[in-house]
Design a protein around this nucleic acid. Structure first.
Lengths: 248, 248
DNA sequence: CGGTCGTTTGATTACGATCAAACGAAGTGG
DNA sequence: CCACTTCGTTTGATCGTAATCAAACGACCG
C-alpha cells in the first residue's frame, strides 16, 4: 500500500522528465486532493460515454484504454504504467470516448477534474507539463495507427515489445530489456490488431529465432538490435528526450 | 488570396466552437504574428525529425499527416481541413515525429512557436482552447487506431467517408452529406491501411449498393443511416458537442 | 479434484494483397 | 491541334497472410 505522501511522487517525477518544475510546482501537484482506491484486475476506471468528474492516476499496477466496435471486436488503444494518468484528456473533454480498465491489481488515485484543471490553468509550469503529457500520449497513438495500419504481424508484435521495454526502463521499472508483461496474449492481440492465436505463433517464432525469450509473462529481449529492426522501431515518438533536446 | 485580417478568423471561430472566448482573447489570437505562404499540392509543411520553430495553420486547402515505415509503406495519420492547425503539438514537442504535406494547393500561415506558446501560457482561455484542440486531435487518432485495427475494409472506408462529412459540415464547408474529397484513392488507402486497388473495389461496391454516389472527387452520401451503420460510425469521438455538453 | 482461464497446436478458409494491364483525363511540347 | 506522357482509376487473375474453427494441454484456484 502506498504511503500517502508518496502516492503522487512518481507522477511528479514523470512530469519532471518532461519539463522542469520548481519546488512550488511540485508542492502544488503533491497537494492535489485525491481519493485512493484499490481495484481488481479488469476493473473499469472510466467507461465509454461517461462524464467523469475526476481523472484517474495509476499509483500502482497497469491499465489499458480500449474501444469496442459495433461488431464486438475490441481494440486496445494504449497501455499505462504505474505513475501515469490514464485519462488526462478528461480534464477538459466532458464525455469519455473510450473505456479504461486495469490489467492488474492496482491502486488508483481519483483526482477531481476541477482541482486538476484549476491547477493546470493557474500554474504555468504544471499546465505545460500536463499538456505536454497529453501531447506525448497522442504521439504514441499516432505510432499505433502506423503499427496496426501498415506493419505485418511480426513487426507489430516486435514493435510493441520494444515500446514496453523502453517505457518501463524510462520509469526505472525494468532494466536489461527484461520485464514482466502484464497482459494475456489475447490482450496483446487486441493491442496490435491481430488474433490471440496468431500472436501466439508470432511470439513462439520470435523466441525460436532467439530474438526474445519468454517464461510465463516475463519477457527478455535477447537481441535488441534485431528485434527493433524486425519491429521497425524508432524511439523518437516516445519523446523521452524532450528536456535534453531543449538544451541542444 | 486571403485578406490579412481574415486569415486567422476561421481558426478563431473553430476554437470558439470548442470553448468560449472573450473579445480580448479573440483579438490576441488574431494579432499572432505569421508568415503566409502559398504551397503546391504535395508540399511538405513539416518533416519527420524536424525541429520546427513555427506551427503551421492551414488557411485554405487540405493537408495530411503521415509516417513512412522502414519498409517504405505510408500510413496517413490524419487529414486536415482549412482553418485547422496541422502540427499544434509542435508548440511544445521539440522534434516532429511525423511529416505533414498538403493535399491541395494551399495557403499556409506559419506562426512562430514562441508567439503561440507565450500566448497559450499567458492567456488562460486561449491556452485552454488550444489544449482542447490537441485533445480532440488525439481522440481522432484513437478512433483511427480502432478503424485500421479492428474494422474490415468496407467499414474502414465507410467510416472515413462519414468522418469527413461531419467534419466538413461542422466547418460549413459542406452540407447535405455532399462534398469534394481532396484525396486520390491511393491516399485514401494509406489513411485506412488498405491498398488503392482494394479501396477502389470497396468504393465501387458502396456506390452499387446505393450508399454513396461518386463523380470524379465528389462524394454524395446517399443513405447516411446505412453508410454510418456499415462504417460503425458514432460521432462522439469528434467532440463536436463540447460546449453544449458543458451547459448540460 | 474438477473447473476456469490462458496457451499452444493443427487444419482450413477467406479477405485483402499483389501482379498485371487497360483505360481515361489532364497537361505538355512539338 | 494533336501526339505523347503522366497520373489516377478500373478491372481481372492469382497469391499469401492472418482469421477462423477446433481441440488439447497446462497452470492456478477454490
Amino acid at each position: 500500500m502506498a504511503v500517502p505522501q508518496q502516492i503522487l511522487e512518481p507522477m511528479v517525477r514523470g512530469l519532471e522528465r518532461i519539463t522542469p518544475l520548481a519546488l512550488s510546482d511540485r508542492e502544488a501537484l503533491l497537494a492535489l486532493p485525491l481519493s485512493l482506491r484499490s481495484m481488481r484486475p479488469g476493473a473499469y476506471l472510466v467507461r465509454d460515454g461517461d462524464r467523469p468528474d475526476h481523472c484517474a492516476l495509476l499509483v500502482t499496477g497497469f491499465a489499458f484504454r480500449h474501444k469496442i466496435t459495433g461488431q464486438g471486436a475490441r481494440q486496445i488503444i494504449s497501455i499505462h504504467l504505474p505513475s501515469e494518468f490514464v485519462d488526462l484528456q478528461n480534464i477538459f473533454l466532458n464525455v469519455s470516448d473510450h473505456s479504461v480498465q486495469t490489467l492488474t491489481e492496482s491502486e488508483v488515485a481519483f483526482i477531481p477534474r476541477s482541482a486538476l484543471s484549476d491547477l493546470a490553468m493557474s500554474n504555468h509550469a504544471v499546465g505545460r507539463a500536463l499538456w505536454m503529457q497529453t501531447l506525448i500520449d497522442a504521439s504514441i497513438f499516432r505510432e499505433w495507427v502506423v503499427n496496426v495500419g501498415r506493419r505485418d504481424s511480426r513487426a507489430r508484435v516486435a514493435h510493441i515489445l520494444c515500446e514496453f521495454s523502453l517505457r518501463l526502463e524510462a520509469k526505472g521499472l525494468a532494466s536489461g530489456h527484461r520485464y514482466e508483461l502484464p497482459m494475456t496474449q489475447e490482450q496483446l492481440a487486441d493491442a496490435v490488431g491481430l488474433t490471440s492465436v496468431h500472436v501466439n505463433r508470432v511470439l513462439r517464432q520470435l523466441a525460436e529465432e532467439g530474438l526474445i525469450s519468454r517464461d510465463k509473462r516475463s519477457v527478455v529481449i535477447e537481441d535488441w538490435d534485431r528485434l527493433s529492426n524486425v519491429g521497425d522501431f524508432t524511439e523518437r515518438y516516445l519523446h523521452h528526450d524532450v528536456p535534453k533536446q531543449e538544451a541542444a
